[in-house]
Design a protein around this nucleic acid. Structure first.
Lengths: 189, 189
DNA sequence: GCCATTTTCCTAATGGTATTAGGCTGGTAC
DNA sequence: GTACCAGCCTAATACCATTAGGAAAATGGC
């Protein structure tokens, strides 16, 4: 009987695809085993448990997101950097809703890979602020505000929270970026 | 054998408490039945299914949140209104993490109560803008930005996303509100 | 090429959760 | 008081997560 060739990496990649197709909360050990044509129990040679699996997807997604954002940010500063970061972030969340959801799960006992990706992400967000005159602790406050706005927007957009008003979500997004640029250039106090 | 006196309302209230205690994703029909001292199957006389139950909790939470925000907003305008709204919103999310999580679930096929509460919430957010000179479509854009920032902040705060930087989250929150007030007073273009 | 070891996958079993079908019974309406 | 209905039960099915232990395929040394 030929082996199915399951590895932790292939499992993680397949779980990420599955998440984008059916939602992160529906990424299940059973569904994954089904996709590989093996029994559920067989996966436990490669992953510790379901939580571990979801953690791996989270780490993968955080890395991919950070890569995209880093590429978008390369060589830009100020408003250009802000817009490039924000659009790369939102595009990733829209193209990979399941993976994006994975990045938002409990960070209570995260594995090292997740922590590393999260730290990199925070550093990248901070890189937006090159070109704006902000020093600590304003910089940290601004990073938190930017991250909140981006995350909140893509989450609400996806959940359908903006569906009740006819105004195009792309237009509001663009104006939100204008507003963020404006407030970064004129940070209060 | 005495009856347990289960009603849809008591179930919903208990589910909301349970959500705050163990997390919304752990609100299960079984756990709820256990709490009422009845068998799982008995709950299906009162709720359609687990999805229905979670929807009821979402509607309850949205109503409570809107009530609190409305009370905070009463008689205020401009910056005062913004701060009062934002703090009421964040306080609710922190005091009732499970209920707050419920408000963010799939809004694909929401029940009428959920829709009504969501609409009321949007109207309240719009009420913040009394005192700022904004007309449509800027108003809609600003409402979406505000909602995104509030939601994003409380979500990331709760998920531990701000834990890597020592700066106090309350301080950053306060400065974020300053920044929002500033940008609403000087809305770009 | 052969054997020991390791890895991968299997079957079997347990326990939790969601859900439906059908039955018993205590309260309520007449 | 009888009949009905709502509220609760048992029983059964079906996933899903997880562990234990066994068999066969790959691997490495000889």
């Amino acid at each position: 009987m030929a082996r199915a060739g399951v590895t932790a990496e292939r499992l993680t990649a397949a779980a990420a695809e599955l998440a984008d197709e059916v939602g992160f909360e529906n990424v299940t050990v059973s569904a994954l085993a089904r996709r590989f044509g093996v029994k559920d129990a067989s996966l436990y040679s490669h992953i510790r448990n379901a939580r571990d699996l979801r953690g791996r997807v989270a780490a993968l997604a955080l890395t991919e997101l950070a890569d995209r954002v880093a590429a978008a940010l390369a060589g830009r500063a100020g408003r250009e950097a802000l817009v490039a970061f924000a659009n790369a972030y939102r595009d990733y969340a829209r193209q990979h809703p399941g993976r994006y959801a994975a990045t938002q799960q409990e960070l209570d006992q995260p594995d090292p890979a997740t922590v590393a990706a999260a730290v990199r992400h925070a550093e990248l967000t901070r890189a937006i602020l090159r070109g704006y005159q902000l020093s600590e602790p304003d910089q940290t406050d601004a990073v938190r505000m930017l991250h909140s706005t981006f995350h909140g927007y893509v989450t609400l957009e996806r959940a359908g929270g903006f569906r009740h008003t006819p105004r195009a979500v792309d237009a509001s997004w663009s104006r939100t970026l204008d507003a963020l640029d404006s407030v970064l250039r004129n940070w209060p106090q």
